[in-house]
Design a protein around this nucleic acid. Structure first.
Lengths: 140, 140
DNA sequence: TTAGTTGCAAAGGCTTTGCACGCGC
DNA sequence: GCGCGTGCAAAGCCTTTGCAACTAA
């Protein structure tokens, strides 16, 4: 039963052109049970089965799997946080993947058609934030 | 003319219950000209007028002004980045401001009515990411 | 064999913290 | 004068980098 999962993960790694290693299987397996986990948490749980796996290797594994499209990193990559003066209006942002440039997007959520759920899964939502990712004019 | 701006910034600080200091005025003034700047950039420009201002103080200033609602921090606050296995479907996330818990939001952007602009301000957009902020059931 | 991964150690980059001094009010 | 802000130094935290040893194919 677990074997089936391992098989599937193995196949996924293979078809992504990645070698099948214990660390990668561990990461995939753990993210099955704990769907929103960070590198350190995953490492902490992984060492039970893979005592030699280091935190840095876990970062490595996660970066590789993300690059291969098997995982998704929820928060944007680490970089200095920009600040702005425009507050109070719900405009949003488009960020360049290549150079990090930020621009405002006004039009998108004037009336927020799909961004108004006030209660989802027990959460009391107060704000919705939209970030568009792409390439700026210079980097295209 | 510049005096008018300074007056307005002064008033804004006062009405937020914050003391009016040179560092805070500098941050507000610079963000007028450079609307999406990070702490280090702002500091680099600020030292021209305020040679004694340190990077750490600039962080301090920005944190205070953000907490007071005078500024907005565009990227989420520094914390370990969670990973997940769900890729390929455009679901989104709701994050608890208090404990950092993350949950999936499926329904929101099935057809992505407002999230489809493919060209905004010269950017070639490939993905749109929605993050809802609020309080989870436990933290309410 | 050999190209791709891991382990380990160290550094990097942005941000926060602690505490004494100084300035706004 | 009182209390909030600042300056400075240091640490914190997550992540990346470099290189030798290893292992999947």
């Amino acid at each position: 039963m677990d074997d089936i999962v391992v098989e599937a993960d193995t196949a996924a790694l293979r078809s992504a052109g990645l070698k099948v290693t214990r660390g990668r299987l561990a990461a995939l397996r753990l993210l099955q049970r704990m769907p929103h986990s960070d590198a350190e948490t995953l490492h902490r749980h992984a060492v039970t089965d893979e005592p030699t796996l280091s935190v840095q290797s876990m970062h490595n594994v996660l970066t590789d799997l993300t690059r291969a499209g098997l995982l998704r990193r929820i928060e944007p990559e680490r970089s200095p946080a920009p600040y702005e003066r425009r507050v109070g209006d719900n405009h949003h942002h488009v960020v360049c993947r290549s150079c990090g440039a930020v621009a405002d997007v006004d039009c998108v959520v004037g009336h927020a058609p799909c961004l108004t759920p006030s209660d989802v899964g027990g959460f009391a939502i107060d704000t919705a934030e939209v970030v568009f990712w792409g390439l700026c004019a210079n980097c295209r």
